[in-house]
Design a protein around this nucleic acid. Sequence first.
DNA 1: ATATTTGCAAAAGGTTTGCAAGACG
DNA 2: CGTCTTGCAAACCTTTTGCAAATAT
Lengths: 146, 146
Amino acid sequence: MRLTANRIAGILREHGYKLTPQRHAVLKVIAASHDHLTPEVIHEKARLNNPGIGLITVYRTLGLLNDLNLVCRVHSPDGCRSYMMRRPTDHHHHLMCSGCGKVVDFAGCALADLEQRLLEETRFNISGHLLEFYGLCPDCCIPASV
Amino acid sequence: MRLTANRIAGILREHGYKLTPQRHAVLKVIAASHDHLTPEVIHEKARLNNPGIGLITVYRTLGLLNDLNLVCRVHSPDGCRSYMMRRPTDHHHHLMCSGCGKVVDFAGCALADLEQRLLEETRFNISGHLLEFYGLCPDCCIPASV
DNA sequence: ATATTTGCAAAAGGTTTGCAAGACG
DNA sequence: CGTCTTGCAAACCTTTTGCAAATAT
């Protein structure tokens, strides 16, 4: 289940952050989109709600949300600049379409065995991982000639 | 088995690229290191062999190597700007130390089942994945007070 | 001989910082 | 009210581009 903008706003307040219209505009954009968005795109969309908002504020709000683990960065071969909302309860990963950029979440990465093996082999104290799949979504798979 | 600088040089030539001293200097740096290196660091090290080499040339050479799949980008929470040599034959991933930046390769990610499941669930035509583990290596795990 | 490659300088992004004015609580 | 937040401009850093000179083959 995805967080709503209002729920996130509450979390911000709980942490002592002020709830400004600019922050709310950013929250609404991120909560409404299921795709990964660059700071620039978030800025554009946020301006529909709050015409005066500055790109700088978007960066600062993203930093804030990232610190609170409410948002996560999406890595892709053409850049690692996008963010999307993180679902707080369950551990999940992304499957991204190389054609249109669509992102699908999935859970159940089943990497515990591998992690255990790496622990034994390397003695690293493993704290996390990054896993993303790339491919073409059904829409982008359709041959151009059809 | 890792590629040597000379082997890579041969591959470049096979593809019709000229083998300049600058390119060779970059190859030697990358082939000699098992860590991920930023363009800047590669430039610094390459200058030991070729004092006149420009940072621009390092960028261009990295682009070349990346296109030929001889080098791969390393993603980390603090940036995705580093590269390291790719082993051409076998599919592998990285385990990175958050303390010192050391990178350990590993193979056997065993994601085929997961990929199959995602294919069935999403109908994506999956072409690849990105997997990296983070943690502290044994050296960095030692408590500071000891 | 000739097309490629290099390096400089300058441009181009993208992101961060300093600081005065403004706004949340 | 006081402190946190905003926005502008300017700084910053990394990466790319234009072009003449140099060079690998």
